[in-house]
Amino acid sequence: MRVEGRETKIAADLLAHYNVHARRLPWRAPPGANATDPYRVWLSEVMLQQTTVAAVGPYYAKFTARWPTVEALAAAKDADLMAAWAGLGYYARARNLLACARAVARDHGGRFPDTEEGLRALPGVGAYTAAAVAAIAFGRRAVVVDANVERVVARLFTIATPLPAARPEIREAADRITPDARAGDFAQAMMDLGATICTARNPACGICPLRQDCAAVQTADPAAYPVKAAKKVKPHRLGHGWWIERDGHVWLVRRPDKGLLGGMRALPSSDWSAAPDSTPPLAARWTMIDPPVAHVFTHFSLALTVHHAHVVQDATPPGEGEWWPVAQIGDAGLPTLFARAAEAVRKDQDARD
């Protein structure tokens, strides 16, 4: 519960700063005005999870041009949406995006619920997204805490408990400083502050509008907050991928809906483990590319050894798949790992020609 005093001053000072210095973003209303389209607020918030504003901008423009309403997105084909999402990563977000759009169109007449509780009931909408949409799109008082806000709050109150255990304490402190009015502007102002001034490294405390009320400024090292638990070493896995080319087309498969890169087009590949099966999907004269393609997932790193071969006209790999024009491989919507594999094949073939 918010209290009077220092907490009220923090909100007032930050909103005054936001009135002048708010970032101009395509999904954002000007300071003092609630967003008029919850669909675009929701879409941007889902895209921005664990992704930078710079990376999201082109995807947001592409999505809103192709699917300008939640009903249009709900009618999209799974494969089209997954292809459009390719490169943004964390592909479960794309599957949840489609499930949520369809629920809004089917169960709510194309209108997003205007409360946190109603938003939380939608598929794929968690506490953060529900709070952000409720505050930014509907002007509801909601406590919005993303990684930037965590950092700002931890420094304001010198919260010394390491993350992630500190999150309840951080949220409670964020609740105390969230105002009843302009909660959406306040949430976006906190995000802006963390992204542009109260950065993870070398925070610009000298120009921070909250420096007079920030406990971390009084310490020798404000960047020491939030305190982070020691990182665990990610396990390393190996895998094999096969580029099967025939008459200017490459064989692509669709990964299972559940699991990593679910529903995405991809090259046929082995399991990803300490000792993956290296048996190719069909007999051919295979060329192995060295070094393997490196990629880091959330929970492990991967070295994918890529093999490529040209096959005769009547050769068809086992299982379901499609022959995709090599010249149009950029339109296949391959996730980053397999886009890198395709680029490795192209470079290897050019070097051999």
Rank of each mutant, 00 (worst) to 15 (best):
E7C: 09
T8A: 14
K9L: 14
K9R: 12
I10A: 13
I10L: 08
D13S: 08
D13T: 09
L14M: 06
A16S: 10
A16Y: 11
H17F: 14
N19A: 13
N19T: 13
V20I: 12
A22H: 11
A22R: 07
A22P: 05
A22V: 11
R23E: 07
R23V: 09
R23S: 05
R24N: 07
R24M: 02
R24E: 08
L25F: 06
L25G: 03
P26F: 05
R28A: 02
R28E: 00
A29T: 01
P30I: 06
P31E: 04
P31C: 08
G32F: 08
A33E: 10
N34E: 12
D37G: 04
Y39I: 03
R40K: 14
R40C: 04
L43R: 01
L43H: 01
S44G: 00
V46I: 08
M47Y: 13
L48H: 04
L48P: 00
Q49W: 13
Q50C: 15
Q50E: 12
T51F: 14
T51I: 08
T51H: 09
T52L: 14
V53W: 08
A55S: 14
G57D: 05
G57R: 02
Y59K: 03
Y59T: 04
Y60Q: 01
Y60S: 09
Y60T: 14
Y60H: 05
K62C: 14
F63V: 10
T64R: 00
A65I: 10
A65S: 14
R66P: 00
W67M: 11
P68N: 12
P68S: 04
T69F: 12
T69E: 15
T69P: 11
V70C: 06
E71I: 03
E71C: 07
E71V: 09
A72D: 15
A72H: 09
L73A: 11
L73R: 13
A74F: 04
A74L: 11
A75I: 00
A75E: 11
A75L: 06
A75W: 01
K77E: 15
K77V: 06
D78W: 01
D78M: 01
A79E: 12
L81P: 06
M82D: 04
A83Q: 12
A84L: 10
A84C: 09
A84I: 01
W85M: 01
G87R: 06
L88C: 08
L88S: 06
G89E: 03
Y91S: 03
A92Q: 11
A92V: 00
R93S: 06
R93M: 04
A94Y: 14
A94L: 03
R95Q: 05
R95L: 05
N96F: 08
L97Y: 00
L98V: 00
A101F: 01
V104H: 10
V104C: 05
V104M: 13
A105H: 15
R106M: 05
R106Y: 04
G109S: 04
G110K: 06
G110H: 09
R111A: 15
F112Y: 04
F112V: 01
P113Q: 03
P113T: 01
T115V: 13
E116D: 10
E116R: 15
G118P: 06
L119W: 09
R120D: 07
R120P: 06
L122M: 09
P123E: 07
G126E: 12
A127I: 11
Y128K: 07
